Deep mutational scan, measured.
Amino acid sequence: TTFEIRVGDLRITLHNADEEEIRWAEEALRRGIHADEILRTLEERRR
């Protein structure tokens, strides 16, 4: 599944994310964390 998060002009697309990952990514985007860093962190958490 694919889920797109939008916060203002910012956007990130997550693939195969669970609800916790989606909530975490949305909050991180709101705090101004760059999408590349969010994706990198999620990848590390999945390992």
Rank of each mutant, 00 (worst) to 15 (best):
R6S: 14
R31E: 09
R23N: 07
L10H: 11
R47M: 10
E19Y: 10
G8V: 01
H15P: 03
E37R: 06
D36C: 14
T41L: 10
I33L: 11
E4S: 00
T41D: 12
I38K: 00
G32E: 05
A17C: 04
L42H: 04
R45V: 09
N16P: 02
G8Y: 01
R40N: 12
E4G: 00
I22A: 14
E37H: 08
E44P: 03
G32D: 04
E21K: 03
D36M: 11
D18E: 09
R31S: 14
R23L: 09
H34N: 12
I22T: 03
G32V: 02
V7A: 02
R46C: 07
E4K: 00
E43V: 07
E21S: 10
R46T: 05
H34C: 10
R30M: 10
W24D: 02
E21R: 02
R40Q: 12
V7S: 03
A28C: 11
T41G: 11
A17T: 08
V7D: 05
E44V: 09
D36R: 05
F3N: 15
A35Y: 05
L29I: 07
R47C: 13
A28I: 04
W24V: 04
I5Y: 00
N16W: 05
T13G: 02
R47G: 11
L39H: 13
F3S: 15
L39D: 02
F3M: 15
H34E: 13
D36S: 09
R6Y: 15
T1M: 13
N16Y: 05
V7H: 04
L14K: 00
R6Q: 15
E37F: 08
T13I: 09
H15A: 04
N16S: 05
E43D: 14
N16M: 06
G8Q: 02
I38L: 09
E20P: 07
T2L: 11
D36Q: 09
L29V: 09
E43S: 11
A25K: 00
D18S: 14
H15I: 08
R46H: 11
R45N: 11
E44Q: 09
R40Y: 06
R46V: 07
R11A: 14
D18W: 06
R31K: 12
W24T: 03
N16H: 06
T41P: 01
L39M: 08
I12F: 04
R45K: 13
D36K: 07
L14F: 03
E27L: 06
E26D: 04
T1Q: 14
V7P: 00
V7T: 02
E37P: 02
R11F: 14
W24C: 04
E20M: 10
D9K: 03
A28E: 10
L14P: 00
R46S: 07
I22L: 06
E43F: 05
E20F: 12
L14G: 01
F3A: 15
R31D: 12
D18N: 13
I12S: 00
G8F: 01
E27Q: 08
T2D: 15
R30Q: 07
D18I: 12
D18A: 07
W24Y: 13
G8L: 01
D36W: 08
R31G: 13
R46W: 05
I33W: 09
E27V: 08
L14D: 00
E27I: 07
L42T: 04
L10C: 06
E4M: 00
R47D: 09
N16F: 10
R31Q: 13
L42Q: 02
L10T: 13
F3I: 15
R23V: 11
T2N: 15
T13F: 01
H34Y: 10
R47W: 06
N16G: 06
I12H: 01
I12P: 00
N16L: 04
L10N: 10
R45Y: 08
T41I: 11
T2W: 15
I5Q: 05
H34Q: 13
L42D: 01
I38F: 06
R23C: 06
E19H: 12
T41H: 10
L10R: 10
T41V: 12
E20W: 14
I5H: 01
D9H: 06
R45C: 08
L14V: 10
G32W: 03
E26S: 09
T13Q: 05
D18Y: 09
L29Q: 02
D9M: 03
A25D: 00
F3K: 15
E21L: 08
R40F: 06
A35V: 11
E43W: 04
F3R: 15
A35D: 03
R40I: 12
I22F: 06
E44T: 08
H34W: 08
T1G: 15
L29T: 03
R40G: 08
T13V: 12
V7F: 12
R31A: 14
I22W: 04
R30G: 07
R45F: 07
G32I: 02
I38P: 00
E37N: 09
T13R: 03
E26I: 13
V7L: 07
I38G: 00
E19L: 11
L39R: 04
E4W: 01
W24F: 13
D36V: 12
L29C: 06
E21C: 13
A35R: 04
R45A: 13
I38W: 01
A25G: 03
H34T: 14
I38A: 02
L10F: 07
E26A: 09
E21P: 01
E43L: 06
I38D: 00
D36H: 11
V7I: 11
R45Q: 10
I38Y: 01
R31C: 08
G8N: 02
I5S: 02
E4D: 03
T41S: 12
T13L: 05
I38S: 00
T41W: 10
G8D: 03
H15G: 03
I5G: 02
F3Q: 15
E21A: 08
L10I: 14
T2P: 11
F3L: 15
R23K: 11
L42K: 01
I12G: 01
E44F: 04
E26F: 09
D18T: 14
R30Y: 09
T1S: 14
R6L: 15
R23P: 02
A35T: 10
R31L: 11
L10P: 00
E20R: 08
E37L: 11
R45H: 09
I33Y: 08
T13P: 04
R46D: 06
A25I: 07
R40A: 10
L42P: 00
N16Q: 05
E37S: 08
G8I: 01
T41A: 10
R6N: 14
A17V: 14
E20Y: 13
R40W: 06
I12K: 01
E20C: 13
E37T: 11
A35P: 14
E4I: 03
W24H: 03
E43A: 13
T1H: 14
E21F: 13
H15K: 04
A25R: 00
E19W: 13
T41Y: 12
E20T: 10
T2I: 15
V7M: 05
I12C: 03
T1L: 15
R47H: 12
E44W: 04
L10A: 14
L29K: 01
E43N: 10
F3P: 15
W24R: 02
A25L: 11
R40V: 10
E21N: 03
V7Y: 12
L14A: 01
G32P: 01
R31P: 01
A17K: 02
L14E: 00
A28L: 09
E37Y: 07
E43G: 10
L10S: 11
E19I: 13
V7N: 02
L42E: 00
G32N: 07
A28M: 12
I33C: 09
G32F: 06
A25C: 04
R6T: 15
R47K: 12
G32M: 05
L29M: 08
R46F: 07
W24P: 00
A35S: 08
A28G: 08
R11V: 15
E19G: 10
R31T: 13
N16T: 03
N16A: 06
E19T: 10
F3H: 15
L29H: 02
E21I: 06
R40H: 12
A35Q: 09
L29D: 01
L29G: 03
I5D: 15
L14T: 01
L42F: 06
T2V: 14
D9S: 05
G8H: 02
E43Y: 06
R23W: 08
H34L: 12
L42R: 02
A17W: 02
E20D: 12
T1E: 15
L39V: 05
I33T: 13
E27H: 10
I5M: 03
A28S: 10
H15W: 07
R45M: 13
I12M: 07
I33G: 05
I38E: 00
R40S: 11
L42N: 01
E21W: 06
A17Y: 02
D36E: 13
D36Y: 09
I12T: 01
I33K: 09
T2F: 14
E26G: 12
L29R: 01
L39G: 03
G8C: 02
E37Q: 08
L10W: 04
A17M: 04
E26C: 07
T13D: 03
E44A: 09
D9F: 03
R45G: 09
F3Y: 09
E26R: 07
D9L: 04
D36G: 09
T41C: 10
A35K: 05
D36P: 08
E37K: 08
L14M: 04
D36N: 06
R46G: 06
L39N: 05
D9P: 04
R11C: 14
R30E: 06
F3C: 15
G32Q: 05
E20L: 12
D36I: 11
E4A: 00
I38T: 01
E37M: 11
R6W: 15
E19V: 14
T13N: 03
L39K: 05
I22S: 04
T2Q: 14
R6G: 13
E19K: 10
H15M: 05
H15R: 04
I5W: 00
T13W: 01
E4H: 02
E44M: 07
E21Q: 08
T1R: 08
R31M: 13
R6P: 08
R31W: 06
G32K: 05
V7Q: 02
E44C: 12
E27D: 13
A17I: 05
L29N: 02
R23E: 10
H34F: 13
T2E: 15
